[in-house]
């Protein structure tokens, strides 16, 4: 059985992530130490609430360096919603917080003229070379997003008052601004492809 460990960034929505992975046959555990982050075959970084609150939880658990190392090494890691944003340097949402800073890019709020939060289903179009993402519809619930695709990463794009990176991948790291666990069969297939990488890399 594929074992996946979840970083407890907060309480909201964790049940949906656990349910989504469990339906695909994964055993899900919750991480508590930096050692767990290093030894886990697959790590999920779910995002809830605000950038600052999620980053605060990670720092108070002492997981910052271990997560950064893991992501830089391209080891199987799935970052969802605010979890993806945490890869950046910082966010307009919480100006006093520093992110995991794996990326130089920052996170900003959607502009005027569109519904915010972006709440609902939108198209995701992968760039050439994507190993995880197929074109399709994903469920979003976000007011902020990364500005652009960083160098060295393969992106996917979505349009909400302009194009933004809705997914990033490098090695076995997959970051999604949308919620794959809430994106129906399309999302389940995406999670399954990532779980296969967890199994193969273990």
């Amino acid at each position: 059985m594929k074992t996946v460990t979840i970083v407890p960034t907060g309480t909201a929505n964790t049940a949906s992530v656990v349910a989504g992975l469990t339906r695909l046959g994964a055993a899900v555990e919750v991480i508590s130490t930096a050692g767990d982050v290093q030894s886990a075959a697959g790590v999920v970084l779910p995002g809830v609430g605000s950038f600052g609150a999620a980053m605060g939880r990670i720092e108070s658990l002492g997981l910052t360096a271990a997560l950064r190392e893991r992501i830089e090494a391209g080891r199987p890691t799935l970052a969802v919603c605010v979890g993806m944003q945490l890869l950046g340097r910082g966010s307009e949402e919480s100006p006093s917080s520093t992110g995991l800073h794996v990326l130089e890019e920052t996170v900003s709020r959607f502009g005027d003229g569109v519904i915010v939060p972006q709440m609902g289903w939108n198209r995701v179009e992968p760039d050439p070379g994507s190993r995880f993402v197929e074109a399709g519809w994903a469920y979003f619930a976000n007011s902020y997003r990364l500005d652009r695709v960083p160098e060295g990463w393969v992106g996917s794009s979505t349009d909400h008052g302009g194009s933004f990176p809705s997914a990033l991948e490098r090695g076995d790291v997959l970051a999604c601004q949308f919620h794959p666990e809430l994106s129906g069969q399309w999302g389940a297939r995406l999670l399954d492809r990532w779980l296969q990488r967890v199994e193969e890399a273990a």
Partner: peptide, 10 residues
Amino acid sequence: GAVRTVLSIP
């Protein structure tokens, strides 16, 4: 809880 187990939409 029971609905969540089967549901893959919000």
